[in-house]
């Protein structure tokens, strides 16, 4: 699975994109975040306040409790500020 990070989430994690092989018990966006946080202090800092984290599954906005089964690309980013 491909994971993408944008804006300050990208800066804190330290990479824009990575491919990960997930353990079988990672079923939702929230459990994926928990797993990512265990990977290092950058991830820990990026996902410290989940109120500021938005997620997309295969380029579609998703809630934290959404299932990631079958997904190819998950993205994490702060609330958007375009316009």
């Amino acid at each position: 699975m491909r994971i993408l990070y944008f804006s300050w989430v990208r800066q804190k994690v330290g990479t824009a994109e990575e491919a990960v092989a997930l353990p079988a018990d990672i079923a939702t966006v929230a459990t994926l975040i928990d797993w990512l946080k265990s990977r290092g202090p950058g991830y820990e800092a990026a996902f410290e306040n989940l109120k500021l984290i938005r997620a997309a599954i295969d380029q579609t906005h998703a809630e934290l409790d959404a299932s990631i089964a079958g997904a190819d690309e998950i993205a994490f980013f702060p609330p958007v500020t375009g316009g």
Partner: peptide, 9 residues
């Protein structure tokens, strides 16, 4: 657009 399109300033 302001609340859903993935742009960051």
């Amino acid at each position: 657009l302001k609340t859903r399109a993935p742009f960051w300033k």
